[in-house]
Design a protein around this nucleic acid. Structure first.
Ligand SMILES: [Zn+2]
Ligand SMILES: [Zn+2]
Ligand SMILES: [Zn+2]
Ligand SMILES: [Zn+2]
Lengths: 132, 132
DNA sequence: ACTGGATATGTAATGATATTACGTATCGTG
DNA sequence: CACGATACGTAATATCATTACATATCCAGT
């Protein structure tokens, strides 16, 4: 599925777990799901998550303290801003980018001498399916 | 219209602590600073923070698991989206609103049948002062 | 004033998330 | 092979947040 030749065994296991999940998973949930694969300690998960996040294959949802697999790997080019719509009812997460949002925020930063390193945009709410 | 209930003693103490702080404080840091005022348990802080957040006097920074006093209580009408620029060097936080960002995000939501409840925008980076 | 419900508080215990410390193993390159 | 960089294993600890239950206080309706 998400087999990445350059990933280690632990990293692949964590990524596969996230890719097959219905929604965001906490590090400890991932740990529990990988007990049978030899995972014993949180650090094994966090280290894999750190690397996967660095590679852009996984995103951390700050408002949930949880992680999701990226829907489509994107580059780490400057100005890349990703937003997430998180349904509080079913847990589904939608990832999207909006160039105008990115430009407005970087515009504010430029006007204030602020140098962005990472931007978090998370919309909590109710998805279309759950609104019926 | 803007009926502002009087704050309780605990709520006032927590708000004062945040208002006089240099930057965001964690709940446990607030607790430590209020030991002399009789605070003994985390829940005393969390309950006050919940109420203050509900009143719009305090914001939670999701990417820090910390809290700041609001700089502009009056700008928080319904639907207002607030953004934060957080300096990772000195900890200073700048709060601002951008109507176009809010419109783009609500536009995306409308187009996808998503009903936003709360939106988090946090820019981590380096402030002007720390960039010199 | 009495009373009953809503709200606020005090305290202990527990749960949930994340990092530090230290040692070993594996990999890639000269 | 030597050796530095990277990954891994494990335990302990640190940090953040909630549950449970008992008391206290406030306040409107009587
Ligand atoms: Zn992505
Ligand atoms: Zn949903
Ligand atoms: Zn504010
Ligand atoms: Zn700074």
């Amino acid at each position: 599925m998400n087999a990445q030749p350059d990933l280690t065994r632990n990293q692949s296991l964590v990524l596969d777990t996230l890719s097959h999940a219905d929604g965001p998973l906490s590090a400890y949930t991932i740990l529990d799901r990988l007990r049978d694969d030899g995972f014993r300690a949180p650090l094994q998960v966090y280290r894999a998550l750190d690397k996967l996040t660095e590679l852009g294959l996984v995103h951390r949802l700050e408002s949930l303290n949880a992680f999701v697999a990226c829907i489509q790997p994107h580059s780490h080019e400057a100005g890349t801003v990703v937003a997430f719509a998180i349904c509080e009812t079913c847990g589904q997460v939608d990832e999207f980018s909006d160039e105008q949002v990115a430009e407005r925020l970087s515009g504010w930063a430029a006007g204030h001498g602020f140098h962005p390193h990472k931007t978090t945009i998370e919309i909590r709410g109710t998805c279309a399916t759950c609104s019926h």
